[in-house]
């Protein structure tokens, strides 16, 4: 495992903990897209089914379980415990616009036409677009709380670090996973606009608000 991979995983973990901590401390999930969080829970559920079929390492197993737990607890906080604070009027992205093409593509373009492999492929494609309901919500309301922007920054940074990981793996192991790389590039591109706003506004102490 190279340094980009471990930093990527830690960035991913930090993003999820930041979001959970923010909701827990403020007892409020306004500004968070429940739809994006449902999609992430679905991503982890369909990707980590191999927890039941093969063991890779302790690290791998522990991280998968932690990611799954974080995703489900977040969804529970939004739709259960703190649902009264959930801003559902602004979380209006139509999920079928993402799910239908992603399901179709995962049947068409995969490594192996087996249920587990198709679900893994589905999870990779879905992850690349799962943040869109959240970004749509921010563009609709025109603003985001600072901790929400930190969450988005680390979530985007994780995928950008994975790109560096894949370049390193290609150089050192001659390994590449075409589905993950192409989806990862797409996913990272969705964050570029946000990265720009984060650096020019949030890091200078201003709240992220769109004109």
């Amino acid at each position: 495992m190279n340094v980009f991979r471990i930093l990527g995983d830690l960035s991913h973990l930090l993003a999820m903990i930041l979001l959970l901590g923010k909701i827990w401390r403020s007892k409020c999930c306004a500004g968070i897209s429940g739809k994006s969080q449902i999609l992430f829970a679905l991503v982890f559920t369909t990707r980590y089914l191999d927890l039941f079929t093969n063991f890779i390492s302790i690290y791998n197993t522990v991280m998968k379980v932690v990611f799954l737990l974080c995703a489900y607890v977040t969804v529970y906080m939004i739709y259960g415990k703190f649902r009264k604070t959930f801003d559902s009027e602004n979380d209006t992205f139509r999920l079928e616009f993402l799910l239908v093409p992603v399901i179709g593509l995962s049947f068409l373009e995969n490594y192996n036409f087996t249920p587990l492999e198709i679900l893994w492929t589905f999870s990779i494609y879905l992850e690349s677009v799962a943040i869109l309901p959240q970004l749509f919500m921010i563009s609709k309301t025109g603003e985001a709380e600072t901790i929400t922007t930190h969450y988005l920054f680390f979530l985007g940074l994780y995928r950008a670090l994975y790109l560096a990981n894949w370049i390193r793996r290609y150089q050192t192991e001659n390994f590449y996973d075409q589905i993950a790389v192409v989806s990862g590039v797409v996913q990272t591109i969705f964050y570029c606009d946000f990265f720009y706003l984060y650096v020019t506004k949030v890091l200078k102490g201003k709240k992220l608000s769109l004109p």
Binding site: D9, N60, F67
Partner: peptide
């Protein structure tokens, strides 16, 4: 490319 389809990445 992927011999055994074992995925160690998260």
């Amino acid at each position: 490319e992927l011999d055994d389809l074992e995925k160690d990445e998260l």
